[in-house]
């Protein structure tokens, strides 16, 4: 048996080339999936869109393309795939991949667990400016997986109130209601 080690270990420089499509796949599947999940917020759609990206992109890719080229190509494909998804579902570009801003290098590396900081940052941006109760209901429901019932119990309100609270909190988080619309 030889070294059972080929790719994945030394991080390829963006100018290096991948040894083959398997390496492209192994290195980028998680990045693309996370990126898509961040844009659609659910697993099924994220899986579908990730599949589309790889099935579309890997065919025409030249094996000798550099890692950087491959990534930007995948990213460009992802942008197109996501745009088509929104056209087909809600008819509006709810989220977009801005290829000038997003870089696959930034989407955390496969197998790494260092994303806590990023997540906190993103959540912080969404939840900042909300009242204590609005923050609480969104945290309980989205981040801690509470049912509406459990969240209502936790906050000491009725289920109906919790629903209203959640709705208003989301509107506020979406930047729709400004000060003075307290619940």
């Amino acid at each position: 048996m030889e070294q059972p080690e080929r790719f994945g270990q030394p991080r390829p420089l963006p100018t290096a080339a991948y040894p083959g499509w398997e390496a492209i796949y192994a290195d980028n599947i998680e990045r693309i999936y996370r990126l898509m999940y961040a844009k659609v917020g659910n697993r099924q759609d994220a899986e579908d869109l990730t599949s589309q990206v790889f099935l579309t992109a890997l065919g025409p890719l030249r094996a000798t393309a550099s890692v950087g080229e491959v990534r930007s190509y995948l990213l460009a494909t992802a942008r197109t795939v996501l745009a088509a998804h929104w056209r087909a579902t809600l008819g509006h570009q709810v989220t977009v991949i801005d290829v000038d801003v997003v870089s696959l290098e930034d989407v955390s590396e496969p197998g790494r667990e260092e994303r806590a900081g990023r997540t906190d940052e993103r959540i912080g941006a969404i939840l900042s400016g909300l009242t204590e109760r609005h923050r609480a209901i969104l945290t309980l429901r989205f981040l801690r997986g509470y049912s509406i019932k459990a969240a209502a119990a936790e906050l000491g309100v009725t289920v109906a109130n919790a629903k209203v609270l959640q709705h208003r909190a989301l509107r506020r988080a979406a930047g729709l209601d400004k000060e003075g619309d307290a619940s």
Partner: peptide, 21 residues
Amino acid sequence: IAIARAAIDLAAAAPDAQRPR
């Protein structure tokens, strides 16, 4: 659309939402 966008951001930040199966 704005609400959906905020909800997607929040849903994507859930700790169990990170890794592909």
